[in-house]
Design a protein around this nucleic acid. Structure first.
Lengths: 205, 205
DNA sequence: TTGTCATCTGTCACTCCCTGACATACATTA
DNA sequence: TAATGTATGTCAGGGAGTGACAGATGACAA
């Protein structure tokens, strides 16, 4: 990896960290792009070359998680019930969080705190991930031989799985200072979810 | 109702209709507030006095639906399982759509079409409704004697119910020109949802 | 009818988000 | 070291959204 790429990555992470800290200090809305760029000593224009929008920063982990889910889904056996597959994908996201660097660990916790302070950001994450969600629906439909145009079940399966992941990640109203605590809660949520559905519901006629 | 209020309501609806038509004709992003205001012959400043944002227009039905859900939940018997209560609330929203004026009927169909063309707007709706969703979680927790801070079940219950409503309303990839078709699909989705959960899951220990 | 009062509206000026274009500075590679 | 490609800063500008102020228009009482 050349000097150029190293510098880019460094700037990218510096922007991300500066933004997360400012968001938590003085609020998401009141923090301007100019401020964030100022901390890292780059121009606002450069900021937008690294992150397509201010939102993009706050939704950093979400983008990453969606990639993992898509990859993971492709690797699941075809005869596995689709909802089970998706919960495996959520667990893959959790595993990735567990295997992350200490720096990324801090970022996960900060993002969670940010979501707690700004619940609307969760919705913005849904908005940003709408394309991915559609692709997941397509994939689930393909794997189960269903037509997503006339059959809402694939959309329901994906919708429920994503809702489960969000609820697990948010942990509203709790002081969470440890990644293990966060991932533990996410796991616990998945266990509750698994016990909530009727066996075979995601393969119903 | 005085002339003043009638004029206001007229302007409000004119803005809404002009916006929906423009959104469907030339796209949501490319339509400017100035254009919408221009059609109705008011200033952009006045537009923002009627709708707090451009998004607010597109999310008109969503705001309305959330109000109904909150009211409805309060009227449900306390001994009813919470998820069942919420599905009743969704049905109250559907009933309201069925009882709406022909003008509102057109608007429902246009909004649905708009969501189909711009899936990210669904997420924006989630973002806008995040406060309401939190209140629903609080209410479900209160009614079931749970602590939303340590117990994710209330959040899951609400998350699943809202996901069900969204999936039913979206009807991705389908030509829908009739309100009865739309409400029928939403009902059908709810029936699928009701059959998917294990009895008593929303009261689990 | 008229005058007063409340409210609605338009204009203006402003901040912030975000983008395209262009010139410059820098890293890479030969 | 020279040539090339990429990253950055500056500048200009559009669109969303807001605060302040003045003028227009309904509401209402005398």
């Amino acid at each position: 990896m050349g000097l150029r790429e190293r510098k880019k990555e460094k700037t990218r992470l510096a922007l991300l960290d500066a933004a997360l800290d400012l968001f938590l200090e003085q609020g998401y809305e009141t923090t301007t792009v100019e401020q964030i760029a100022g901390v890292v000593d780059v121009s606002s224009r450069t900021f937008f070359r690294y992150f397509s929008s201010k939102e993009h920063l706050a939704l950093w982990w979400h983008d990453h998680g969606e990639e993992i889910m898509q990859e993971c889904l492709r690797d699941r056996p075809l005869d596995e019930p689709p909802f089970t597959s998706l919960l495996h994908c959520v667990r893959a996201v959790i595993a990735d969080m567990r295997n992350s660097t200490p720096e990324d660990t801090d970022r996960f916790l900060k993002v969670r705190k940010l979501y707690e302070n700004n619940p609307m950001l969760v919705g913005r994450a849904v908005a940003r991930g709408s394309q991915t969600e559609l692709r997941l629906v397509e994939e689930v439909a393909r794997r189960t031989g269903r037509d997503p145009a006339t059959d809402q079940l694939p959309a329901l399966i994906v919708g429920f799985a994503m809702a489960a992941m969000r609820v697990g990640f948010e942990c509203p109203g709790q002081e969470i200072t440890d990644l293990a605590e966060l991932t533990g809660r996410m796991e616990a949520t998945l266990v509750v979810v698994e016990a909530s559905f009727r066996p075979g519901w995601d393969l119903a006629a």
